[in-house]
Amino acid sequence: MDKPTIKKVAEVARLNLTDEEISDFSKDFDGILEQFSKLHKEKFGEGDAEEKAAILRKDGTQLDNAVAEKIMDNAPNKENNLYKVPKGSK
């Protein structure tokens, strides 16, 4: 996989990579995807799957203040019990 593709994928994946990481992954990924391309030599039947919908829980809130407080205790930065985050980019 070439470096520009890795850079593009990293952007989508929200990862800042160093130049060294980009060149290491670039080498790795060719080997991994080559190994996995075995799949393309296989024939799969008509009945073989498509993507399935996830089984989801019903929407709803369970408000427990004691838990909410513990959740906020894990915030890296907060103010008045709200998460404090940097400004969004344009």
Partner: peptide, 11 residues
């Protein structure tokens, strides 16, 4: 900024 903070944190 926000996006860069996310990407830096995930590094």
């Amino acid at each position: 900024d926000l996006n860069d903070t996310v990407a830096e944190s995930r590094s």
